[in-house]
Nucleic acid binder design. Structure first.
Length: 412
RNA sequence: CGGGAGAUGGCUGAGUGGUCGAAAGCGGCGGUCUUGAAAACCGUUGAUGGGCAACUAUCCGGGGGUUCGAAUCCCUCUCUCCCGGCCA
């Protein structure tokens, strides 16, 4: 959620920063004027309420003294109506304001480059060199192993669902276990959470109200399948005031993720790149504001080192303003090399949302005497499915076999 | 899913219509005593928003209603606990 106070007090600055995200400026103007109107109306309402409270107390006193109450009673009744009217007005304005404000994306960090889309993202560095092959490397769906069962996955549900069998299934589980252990060694506590979340939870992390179409909703219930573990894990501490000694909280979580992929018809229809359900090991951190940049770097390093340990060539990319997600103030994507496609593709995405999610989810900590909003960060440790097929493509041999990376051997 | 009980401040727990934002105890903080600590004793201590401040509004699970006035009465939703059914 946008900081309305900041918008009121420093409008030009906020507008300028949000230009990077192509936000409709008239919406910002509207938010500002509505919020000022709200403030005015609230002041009037409060004064009326104060009057009402004082007179109500008098009523009790008069009653004891046996005084005539009729006049006071009618005064109170009249005032009551005024209060009620103003109160509904205030509530309406508040609702209007929160609806508009909740659709405004986060303010990009200073360090985020200008740009419209993916083309303007900036490569930070490359790690490891892509492998060379003495033969033409295949894409994962062409590899002659029975690890991925696309047809039967579709039979069970619909397109964009895949079943794993045999070594494929086992490798997926090995990856999950390996990643969780890897993260735990770096100080991320493992958590396990529900894959179904309610509306408040999805609103806290910013998926709702704007992106309901991307979510699978349970029929007849106000519940949704989670699109990422970020949602439940970040919301673990929703509506809480944390003790400063608890921070930073660093967590890692394996979950299945469910996405409708509504806007991506025709993209990545082959193979396991883009699925309605996929496994992911996630990193989530909750920090003091002054620590969040450090923790962000730690999370990026954690994901990058994980790829390195698996021997997978990858690069780090800083997203530009136009490509940044709704809740993110800053995002670094990790892209792994796919020999079959001859290109890098996203396998992890680490974001710092600053206090954007914290304000929505009301996650705060006590600092001295004051309550302050935390910063929340999230990132894929790695998307398991994409890691699986990256291993398949990068470790394929001319005879059609696939070598298992040595770090995974003890997990197989 | 059926039957019963309940939801109050950091915790335990009183409070059934009028200075109740809420007794008491615990905990926390400050102090006395002590070489230091414990114990004892004294004092203090809810949250959020607005305001430089005085102050003020809101909050007793959520929402709605009755009333001049609701923690207290009514409706509704959610959640928790106990009994039964079902079940990994």
């Amino acid at each position: 959620m946008l900081d309305i106070k900041l918008l009121q007090n420093d409008f030009d600055n906020v507008r300028e920063k949000l230009k990077k995200k192509k936000v409709d400026e008239t919406l910002l103007e509207e938010i500002k004027s509505i919020s000022l109107e709200l403030k005015e109306k609230k002041k009037i309402l409060e004064d009326l309420q104060a009057e009402q409270n004082a007179k109500s107390k008098l009523f009790g006193v008069y009653a004891k003294e046996g005084k005539n109450l009729e006049e006071l009673k009618s005064e109170l009744s009249q005032n009551k109506e005024k209060v009620a009217l103003l109160n509904t007005q205030v509530k309406e304005i508040e609702e209007k304001l929160s609806i508009i404000a909740s659709t405004i994306p986060n303010i990009p960090d200073e360090s985020v480059p200008e740009g419209a889309d993916e083309e303007d993202n900036i490569e930070i560095k490359r790690v490891l060199t892509p492998p060379t092959f003495s033969f033409a490397p295949k894409e994962h769906w062409d590899l002659d192993v029975d690890w991925l069962d696309f047809e039967r996955g579709v039979k069970l549900a619909k397109s964009r669902f895949t079943a794993l069998r045999g070594t494929g299934a086992k490798l997926s589980r090995a990856l999950i276990n390996y990643m969780l252990d890897f993260n735990a060694k770096r100080g991320y506590q493992e958590v396990c959470v529900p894959y179904i979340a309610n509306r408040d939870t999805l609103t806290g992390t910013g998926q709702l109200p704007k992106f309901e179409n991307d979510l699978f909703k349970l029929d007849g219930e106000d519940l949704f399948l989670i699109p990422t573990a970020e949602v439940p894990v970040t919301n673990l501490f929703r509506d809480e005031i944390l003790d400063v000694s608890m921070l930073p909280i660093k967590m890692t979580c394996y979950s299945e993720c469910f996405r409708k992929e509504a806007g991506s018809a025709g993209r990545d229809t082959r193979g396991m790149i883009r699925q309605h359900q996929f496994s992911k090991v996630e990193l989530v951190s909750i920090t003091k504001p002054e620590e969040s940049d450090l923790v962000f770097d730690d999370m990026v390093a954690c994901a990058s080192d994980l790829l390195t340990s698996l021997g997978l060539a990858h690069r780090l990319v800083m997203l530009c303003g136009g490509d940044l997600g709704f809740s993110a103030a800053k995002t670094v994507d990790l892209e792994v090399w796919f020999p079959g496609q001859n290109r890098y593709r996203e396998i992890s995405s680490v974001s710092n949302t600053h206090d954007f999610q914290a304000r929505r989810a009301m996650i705060r900590y006590k600092d001295e005497k004051k309550n302050r909003l935390v910063h929340t960060l999230n990132g894929s440790s790695l998307a398991v499915g994409r890691t699986l097929i990256a291993i398949m493509e990068n470790y394929q041999n001319e005879d059609g076999s696939i070598t298992i990376p040595s770090v995974l051997e003890r997990y197989m």
